[in-house]
């Protein structure tokens, strides 16, 4: 299925969860947060949150900022 991840198109296998996607993007998901379609998905919910075709996913982490 086709997702938009951090603003770019990305294909993932059907049935993939948020945890699967995060695992593909960052090897050690320390300091990472995820929103799907503008809603926060808490870390504890990543394994059970199934992704759907067309989902917009933001995978965020610490960056330099004042």
């Amino acid at each position: 299925m086709e997702l938009t991840v951090n603003g770019a198109g990305r294909s993932v296998p059907a049935g993939a969860s948020v945890a699967d996607l995060v695992g593909d993007i960052v090897p050690h998901p320390r300091g990472v947060a995820v929103a799907v379609n503008g809603e926060v998905v808490p870390r504890t919910g990543w394994p059970t949150r199934a992704l759907r075709d067309g989902d917009r996913v933001e995978v965020l982490t610490a960056a330099q900022g004042g």
Binding site: N6, V59, T61, A62, A63, Q64, G65, G66
Partner: peptide, 19 residues
């Protein structure tokens, strides 16, 4: 110390190592 939250691998510091 303050930090921002940004897309992984985009903004300075978000490629790892800051935390």
């Amino acid at each position: 110390v303050t930090v921002a939250l940004r897309r992984v691998g985009t903004a300075p510091g978000s490629t790892g190592g800051l935390l």
